[in-house]
Design a protein around this nucleic acid. Structure first.
Length: 554
RNA sequence: GCGCCCGUAGCUCAGCUGGAUAGAGCGCCGGACUUCGAAUCCGUAGGCCGCAGGUUCGAACCCUGCCGGGCGCGCCA
């Protein structure tokens, strides 16, 4: 509808120009058609007169007058008003909204989807936690945002792949193996001193115990070259499968799991560096290789190969992003913890150096989660390895509540996650509000069935009976659903979906309390039940985009 | 010190990339179940959009400078 009105205004503008009502000029690109905040300003509002006023050399209200006079007879509109400094306000006729319900209904389960993305290939990479410990709540937020964003992008017509990058190369893997080995020695009664920079969590002991129970003490006298591969790989395997299980229970499933080892196995890191070297972006200093990222707005140059010959994490990151683009993705979305924001300029620099437009990489920074319990901050000391895991949160409050909480806020704002609130099955918990709207509609339709009300074919229903203000509001919101998904996808902001749904649920609950779906009036009942069916589908679709279930009963 | 993010109702946060009189949830107070589910609804109160300038028809939004909070600034991963 919005696009339709925009086009209508454009046509009228051009007509006005060709008729000589306005001076020769282009349609200003800043022209916007948007729903006004104030209800009495109509359904949509155009600012075209305001922004073209100075170029046209006329007062805005006069321009608005000329454009609107050309549109007065369009039956789409109930009325057109000129208001304030020169806005043109459009009031769409009620019958259009009513008839649109049939269009929505005919779209079926696909309603809400669009082709805004035009099949552009997008890769969304998220979580990507190192396999050195279980996922914590912060990862959970990233997982919820990434997974939901992927769903939204798909619904908006993008061709989406999701990916988890496994950082399984380097020193940390050795540290992991050693941590387990030390606990293994400890298990067998060997006196150990456990270094502070090793992995502290209790899960390390669990893995050590498993190995000890399975293998006995045969590794006590072994050399590091013998035990390290065993302890390291066992740990990675155990931790990785734990991570996968946590994500699966969070209803997050990846299309690809990409191992950093693949980059090394195919020599891609070395190749990428030497390519940059050929292009002259690499120099040697103090025995190390440096990448001149300052040439692309980074604060300082970065090391890609240390003087001891070891490639840095950054080096494999460059190779990884190159590899992603080589795989044919048009846009790369990286979702990182906000504490990594310092890496954005250097990765961008790498893309630029390799000749890619840097805006093909979109980085979403997800702020850390502040866990609360009944309004009080819950202590999280990372140094003792006592962070709260995603698993604990899932067991505590459930997947639906957790996901909804993570998705009600913009991802770059700090999030207070109150466990007590998320646990509560009451009105304070926003998850239930939306789910209840869905369950209520399901209940209404069940009741209709029990009372043996036969549902008519949609095109047999008299939609003009949906004429209360509440119904009109709901019809308008339903119409906006596909546009909302498209906007949410283009802005990479999945939280808009949860706001939309909360708002829609509000309208629905309000309507429910005021009007009855099922009544003596057969025609009215049919019209309202059709509305119920359509709304239920929108709730289900919307909740699904968030990865939250849509229960028939609660 | 430099860089990035944030500052909106008592609390937690939206504000559709610059629009008209600033929004929601929670909390407070007062009402609504013999009726399709009260996990709901209806009503009241609550604001110098951190501060000060600038840009223009128009600023919570864009620019500059302060104030306050978070994070990052290794040949770590």
């Amino acid at each position: 509808m919005r696009e339709k009105i925009k086009k209508t205004v454009h046509d009228a503008f051009n007509t006005a120009v060709s008729k000589g009502l306005l001076p020769e000029m282009e349609i200003p690109s800043a022209h916007q058609v948007s729903p006004p905040r104030q209800k009495n300003h109509g359904d949509f509002s155009s600012n075209i007169a305001l922004i073209s006023a100075s170029a046209a050399g006329r007062p805005p209200r006069q321009i608005a007058e000329q454009i609107s006079s050309l549109l007065k007879d369009d039956p789409l509109f109930e009325k057109i008003e000129i208001a304030g400094p020169g806005f043109i306000n459009f009031f769409v006729s009620r019958s259009w909204w009513q008839n649109n319900l049939l269009t929505i209904c005919n779209a079926g389960d696909a309603y809400g989807e669009s082709n805004a993305g035009r099949g552009i290939r997008v890769q969304v990479e998220f979580v990507s936690a190192n396999p050195t410990g279980p996922l914590h709540v912060g990862h959970g937020r990233g997982a919820a945002v990434g997974d939901s964003l992927a769903r939204v992008l798909r619904a908006a017509g993008f061709d989406v792949d999701t990916e988890y990058y496994i950082n399984d190369v380097g020193n940390q893997m050795r540290t992991l193996g050693k941590s387990v080995y030390l606990r293994y020695q400890e298990y067998h009664g060997v006196e150990i001193s456990f270094p502070e920079d090793h992995y502290q969590g209790a899960y390390i002991r669990d893995i050590a115990r498993e190995i000890a129970e399975r293998e006995g003490d045969r590794y006590l006298d072994a050399s590091e070259t013998q035990w390290l591969p065993v302890f390291r790989d066992t740990a990675v395997k155990a931790i990785s499968s734990g991570i996968r299980r946590d994500l699966a229970d969070f209803d997050v499933h990846f299309d690809h799991w990409f191992s950093e080892r693949v980059l090394y196995r195919n020599n891609l890191v070395e190749k990428t560096i030497s390519e940059l070297q050929t292009k002259g972006f690499i120099y040697e200093k103090d025995g190390a290789l440096w990448f001149r990222t300052t040439e692309f707005n980074d604060e300082k140059d970065r090391v890609v190969k240390r003087s001891n010959g070891v490639l840095t994490y950054f080096a494999s990151d460059i190779a990884y992003h190159r590899h992603k683009l080589d795989r044919g993705y048009d846009i790369l979305v990286d979702i990182w913890g906000a504490d990594h924001h310092g890496y954005v300029p250097r990765v961008r620099a790498a893309l630029k150096a390799m000749g890619h437009p840097p805006d093909r990489l979109r980085v979403l920074l997800v702020q850390l989660v502040n866990l609360m319990e009944a309004g009080k901050p819950k202590a999280m000391s990372t140094r003792a390895g006592e962070f709260v895991t995603l698993r604990e949160v899932l067991n505590d409050v459930g997947s639906d509540a957790a996901r909804f909480m993570f998705l009600t806020r913009r991802c770059d704002s700090h999030l207070d996650f109150d466990l007590e609130l998320a646990r509560k099955q009451s009105q304070e918990n926003p998850v239930y509000y939306v789910q209840y709207a869905h369950a209520r509609l399901a209940s209404v339709l069940r009741t209709a069935k029990e009372q043996e009300v036969d549902l008519w074919e949609p095109d047999q229903v008299d939609l003009s009976l949906l004429d209360t203000d509440e119904e009109t509001d709901i019809l308008k919101q339903a119409e906006a659903f596909p546009g909302l998904i498209a906007d949410s996808a283009l802005a990479l902001e999945p939280h808009r979906i949860s706001y939309y749904l909360s708002n829609l649920a509000g309208h629905l609950h309000s309507y429910y309390n005021k009007c009855r779906f099922i009544s003596e009036d057969q025609d009215l009942t049919q019209a309202r039940l059709l509305l119920a069916r359509v709304m239920k589908r929108i709730f289900r679709k919307g909740l699904n985009l968030l990865g939250v279930s849509a229960p028939e009963k609660m």
